[in-house]
Amino acid sequence: MSYSVTLTGPGPWGFRLQGGKDFNMPLTISRITPGSKAAQSQLSQGDLVVAIDGVNTDTMTHLEAQNKIKSASYNLSLTLQKS
């Protein structure tokens, strides 16, 4: 079951990613910084990142996902799936 979260910026957003197409692993939330915008939302460590700002992550490399997140200036919309 997927869910959506919109973090209001600017960054830093307070989470780290792992995985990506180049690692043959789905993009997942690997760490959440305590007290951060991510920590105050529904994000959980281990959640799968399905889309970033409406763009499906199935074919994204780790770097492409990082760049997509960094390019979000004020709002960052994520679609996630609980692990």
Rank of each mutant, 00 (worst) to 15 (best):
A72K: 14
N75V: 11
S30N: 07
S83T: 12
Y74V: 15
K37N: 07
S2D: 11
G54I: 00
T28H: 10
L48M: 13
I69C: 11
G19I: 00
F23I: 12
N56L: 14
Q45G: 06
G11S: 10
R31E: 15
L48C: 14
K70T: 12
H62S: 11
A38G: 05
T61P: 04
S83F: 12
G19A: 02
Q81D: 08
F23H: 08
M25P: 02
N75T: 15
Y74C: 13
R16D: 12
V50K: 13
G54W: 03
K82H: 08
F23L: 14
H62C: 12
T57Y: 02
R31I: 07
P12G: 05
A39N: 08
T57I: 04
N67D: 15
Q40K: 12
E64W: 04
I69M: 08
A72P: 09
F23A: 11
D22K: 04
G14M: 00
N24V: 05
P34E: 13
G35L: 06
L80E: 00
V55P: 01
S4L: 07
Q18R: 11
V55R: 09
D47K: 00
V50Q: 11
Y74D: 15
S77P: 08
R31W: 13
D22Q: 05
G20C: 02
I29M: 05
P26F: 01
L80H: 01
S44D: 08
L78H: 00
A72E: 14
F23G: 08
G35D: 08
S41F: 09
S77R: 13
V5Q: 03
S30T: 11
L80G: 04
T8I: 10
N24M: 07
I32S: 02
A72M: 10
R16W: 12
D47E: 06
Q45L: 13
F23V: 13
K68T: 11
S77T: 14
S83D: 08
N67S: 09
I29P: 00
M25T: 11
R31T: 14
D53G: 08
L27W: 02
P26D: 04
K70L: 13
I32Y: 01
S71T: 15
A51D: 07
T33Y: 13
I52K: 00
D53W: 03
L27T: 06
T59G: 12
G11K: 10
A65W: 03
P12E: 10
S77M: 15
V55W: 08
Q81F: 08
L63Q: 13
M60Q: 03
R16N: 12
K68R: 15
A51F: 05
A65V: 11
G19Q: 03
V55S: 10
A38T: 03
G19H: 03
P26H: 04
S71Q: 15
S71P: 06
G46H: 06
F23W: 10
P10K: 12
N67E: 14
L63Y: 12
W13G: 02
F23Y: 06
L63E: 13
A72C: 07
Q18P: 00
G54D: 09
L76P: 02
L48T: 14
T61A: 04
N75L: 11
T33F: 09
G46S: 05
Y3T: 06
K68Y: 08
S2R: 09
R31Q: 09
A38C: 05
S71R: 14
P34V: 07
G14S: 02
S44V: 10
T28W: 07
L63I: 09
I69G: 01
T6P: 02
I69K: 01
Q81V: 15
P34K: 12
T79E: 13
I29V: 13
Q66S: 11
L76M: 06
A38Y: 02
L80T: 06
G19V: 01
K82S: 15
K68E: 06
L7Y: 05
N24I: 05
N24D: 09
K21E: 07
A38M: 02
L48H: 07
Q81Y: 07
D58A: 11
S73I: 09
A38K: 01
P12R: 05
P26K: 04
Q40H: 11
S71I: 10
T59D: 14
A38Q: 02
L17V: 12
Y3E: 04
E64L: 03
S77V: 14
L48I: 14
K82E: 13
Q66M: 14
V5E: 03
K21L: 10
S2Y: 14
K68V: 13
Q40F: 12
N56H: 10
T28P: 00
S44R: 12
L43C: 06
Q42I: 07
I32N: 01
Q42Y: 05
M25F: 07
I29R: 00
S4M: 11
P10C: 11
D58G: 09
N56G: 14
G54T: 04
T8E: 15
G9C: 06
K68F: 09
I52E: 01
Q66D: 14
N67I: 09
L43I: 10
Q42G: 14
K68L: 14
G19L: 01
K37E: 11
K68P: 00
F15N: 01
E64G: 06
W13N: 03
S71L: 10
S4Y: 07
Q18G: 12
S4I: 14
G20V: 01
K70V: 11
P10I: 09
I52A: 01
L17N: 02
N67R: 09
T33N: 09
M25H: 10
S41M: 10
R31A: 12
F23M: 11
M25Q: 13
I29D: 00
Q66Y: 09
I32W: 00
A39Y: 08
S44E: 13
V55Y: 13
Q45M: 13
P26S: 04
V49G: 00
N75D: 15
D47Y: 02
R31M: 12
I32F: 01
S73A: 14
A39L: 04
A39T: 05
L63C: 14
T6M: 10
N67T: 10
L63P: 07
A65H: 00
Q42K: 13
A65Q: 03
Y3K: 04
S2H: 14
N75S: 13
K37D: 06
T6E: 07
V55N: 11
T61Y: 05
Q45C: 10
G35F: 07
G46A: 04
G19S: 02
R16G: 12
S2G: 09
M25D: 07
P10W: 07
V50C: 10
S71H: 09
I52R: 00
P10A: 11
S83C: 15
A51L: 07
V50F: 06
Q18S: 15
I52N: 00
I32P: 03
S4C: 10
Q81S: 13
Q40Y: 08
M60A: 03
I29C: 05
H62F: 12
L27F: 10
K21H: 07
T59Q: 10
G35K: 11
L43P: 00
D22E: 12
L43E: 00
G46K: 04
S36M: 05
K21T: 12
G11L: 05
L17P: 01
Q18C: 09
W13T: 03
S36E: 04
S73W: 10
S36Y: 03
Q45R: 10
L27M: 10
S83Y: 09
G20L: 01
Y74M: 15
